[in-house]
Amino acid sequence: MIRLERKFASLKENSKKALVAYLVAGDPDISTTLELMHQFVLSGVDIIELGVPFTDPIAEGPIIQAAHDRALQANTSLDMIFSLVEEFRSKDSETPVILMGYINTFLANSKALESIHERGTDAVLIVDVPGESSLEDIGIQNKNIASISLISPTTDNDRIQKICMSSSGFIYYVTLRGVTGASNLNEDEIQKNILNIRNSTNLPVLAGFGIKTASDARALSQISDGVVIGSVLVEMIQELSEKKDYKKIYNYLNEISAAINP
């Protein structure tokens, strides 16, 4: 959690926006994920969001679903992901790492979750747990990790307040009605809703779901504290995994980074 706070403080000091990159842990395998995490940081990524694969990821579009399937094919377990983060920390002690997944896999490993911050994880984002629940409510005993929640275009003011109360780290604003990787962004609505969320919290508000191009990222970063890029990266990982040459992704990330912090 401390890493997240430090990161946002330093971004703020330098008047910069956050670039969060999502990839599915274990797609196509754990060692590639580790390499990509380090390279992402070198390409301008501020925060890494690791997808925890699940058999039934109902909030994901087809691109990320397929990545979950590939990671499960490679027998990726949550425990392997905790170790992956630990290994990442041996070379990078500063970049915050968030685990994003579904409640059933976390509950099956609730014991191991008690020590994940010592193993380098900073926050969890559990997609199918209502945002007003605390981690404790759902059986995760760990006061040292942040609990990041989603707020969507359909969240009413009453819920926004409750969710902000029980969230830490940052607020993840879902920019569209739909699954990850969809493409129906409505900038005016996003701006209005983010301003509204800021009435309830001092936490940074990041925008994600459906951000693909540098111009999407730029436009949304101007009305938020940063952007989350997911499906585009996951699609490129899939496309490039055969030749194991991921330079195209690093170039893309550099381009996004430059677009949001010109």
Partner: peptide, 11 residues
């Protein structure tokens, strides 16, 4: 319970 993505809570 209600274990769903946030977008569905309103519906």
């Amino acid at each position: 319970g209600k274990f769903v993505p946030e977008t569905l809570m309103f519906a």
